[in-house]
Amino acid sequence: MNQLEIQGSEKSFFERRITRHEFVKEISIVAAGILGGCTPLKIVFNAFPERFSKDAHLCEQMLRAFVTTVIPGAVNNDTNLIRIFRDTYYPFCGYCDFFVSDLAARSANLFGDDQFDRLTRQQRAAVVRDGLDGDATIERLYQGAIFMSQVSYYAGIYDDEKGCPLIDFHGSNYGFGEEEMYYTNSSLYLASEATSDGNYS
């Protein structure tokens, strides 16, 4: 197991809290703040296996396997699949190598193979669940990684035009055909109205 020293840093947490830009749309209430500050704790790495910070290809394979575990059906060789993890806009970037090393450690621990990407889908899911059951910091790390995968993939944030074909999200567009937007017989479905102009008196 990697030896970790977890340093609580109230100050950096506080600073992040007050500068984070949590945005919340009316219904959707987007708590995207996680994207702006994944963990309040500074993780200091001791005996952190250099293998994962040195071997970019290995890291990439593991991250791709992680995203396709969280989102089965996501296209493994999609160029943007794991871009968010290396995007310096998001502080998670600083924890990415550590996250990969933790995936490896859990894989080895549970299934005797530290290459997460070589495990079966069920095994990988078990590793992710194991991370979510970890201590508070590890749980946060896994929550953050799941969240970032979903935001990046479902919302297609690195390719506005493409969107996310998996969920039939078309991305940016400049207008649909009438038949796509409206029912021609909508009056059949509409309920009776309580007002003459939409405003209640």
Binding site: V24, K25, E26, I27, S28, I29, V30, A31, A32, I34, L35, T69, V70, I71, P72, A125, V128, I146, F147, Q150, V151, Y154, A155, G156, I157, C164, I167, F169
Partner: peptide, 28 residues
């Protein structure tokens, strides 16, 4: 309301209620 995917993903863990199965906010 019509939240875009980012809104729905980033706002909440949505899971199907009932049926007793493993309804997770990630995975299949």
């Amino acid at each position: 309301a019509k939240p875009l995917p980012l809104n729905v993903v980033a706002s909440a863990h949505l899971t199907l209620a009932g049926e007793g199965g493993h309804n997770s906010y990630w995975g299949q």
